[in-house]
Design a protein around this nucleic acid. Structure first.
Lengths: 228, 228
DNA sequence: CGAAGAATTTGAACGTGTTCAAGACGTGGG
DNA sequence: CCCACGTCTTGAACACGTTCAAATTCTTCG
């Protein structure tokens, strides 16, 4: 592999092959037996490499989980396409996107808790708010931008431009709820989504009422003031 | 120690003394050098007991942190008294309670991330949503009940009864923000509090506008429907 | 080709949280 | 007083994530 400076940066075809082997093995074991019960030794063993080799490519066990999360996002992105192509009404668009995430993430429900455990640590590069995970976050926000842009929502411009990020935050809340949801087939999370999105829709449409507009402006101003 | 059945439950005075010694030693070390850098061996060593002995009283290192959190809540409760005695206006009451938490928790800002790391894991008994932490959560919600009850807020009865728990959730959001806040003297978190509480106040007073009342009812209904 | 240097791979070793079989201690009943 | 039993204490051992110096393999270039 050649960089722009003409200097080799070290990565070889063989190396990339090993990297991928380690990752796919790790992901398989995570899926089969959960994150906590999968040891680095088991991953290395199963992949036919040494423990140290796994650490040569992935700085920690958490970094392997991060890859797991990236995979999830790719799948979500794909699952969401028909929803975004279907119609312009905000409620089905938003509901569809959230329910699609639920479908994609379902096999990993038990393991998801562990993910959020590390995600909540601000010092971890895996935190959804960290700089390191900016690409993944941006990709996720982009989905919500499409939800808004392709919808029939009529909103003040400043609110409209903040909305995708706010919807992403909204999803984070849903996910937090989902992680703790122990009901059959995560029925409660489904109820939360199907009932809260229409509510959100009504709230957003309320912003056109004169008495409410002032509050909306303040909300937008607040968001601007606390952004880093 | 005697139970209601008249059978001794095993705890002796000596044992309770050891339990307390271990806890205070652990809390001191956490404060002095942070949670991550404090080892169970160091705690046992400093307390003059064996490692196994610490585990006899506290099931895990996390359980010691839980005690740390309980202490924090006690301090918050005390710090909040003058605020709740001062006046009836909702904004200063709520703002005061949140800022008081900031003051009490300030020395532990760096360490707080680690706490929320374990707190976000739904399988952990330390999760703020778990049954095990219900007493601590109830105590915290109780503070917000006093914020509401002693205030001049005029609200529909059903919303009013849900409000303390909602304010507790609100605080959880603030705390999540605080954990990630790296600004000097957590200026951004302070800004978030002092600006969002008046906004919250306006929102709550809006619930009396006829066009908004419907949304409020739906919100309350939603909350009821997703409670476990 | 063959040597130098870079990339990759190894596995033993470290530090950590945690467990557990064994022993020490204390107390109430005979 | 002493035995029996429950409480408390010990420290070695385990499993895990992680590190690192050394060995090996690969690439480059004279």
């Amino acid at each position: 592999m050649i960089t722009l400076t003409g200097v080799t940066d070290g990565a070889t075809a063989k190396g990339e092959q090993t990297r991928e082997l380690i990752l796919t093995t790790a992901l398989r074991l995570f899926r089969e037996q959960g994150y906590g019960r999968t040891t680095m030794r088991a991953i290395a063993n199963e992949a036919g490499v040494s423990v140290g080799n796994a650490y040569y490519y992935y700085g920690s066990k958490d970094h392997l989980m991060q890859a797991y999360y990236d995979l999830l996002q790719d799948q979500h992105r794909a699952a969401v396409e028909p929803v975004l192509a279907a119609g312009q009404a905000f409620v089905p668009r938003m509901t569809g996107v959230l329910l699609a995430w639920l479908e994609v993430a379902a096999p990993y429900h038990e393991f998801a808790g562990t993910f959020f455990k590390t995600a909540a640590d601000p010092q971890s590069p895996l935190s959804p708010f960290s700089d390191e995970s900016r690409p993944a976050r941006d990709a996720s926000v982009e989905i919500f931008r499409q939800v808004v842009d392709g919808s029939d929502l009529k909103l003040p411009a400043d609110l409209r431009s903040e909305l995708p990020e706010l919807l992403w935050l909204f999803q984070m809340g849903i996910v937090l709820f989902w992680v703790h949801d122990r009901s059959d087939d995560v029925r409660r999370t489904r109820a939360l989504i199907t009932r809260s999105v229409p509510l959100l829709d009504r709230l957003l449409r309320l912003t056109r009422i004169p008495g409410v507009r002032g509050v909306t402006n303040d909300v937008v101003a607040l968001i601007h003031s606390i952004k880093p």
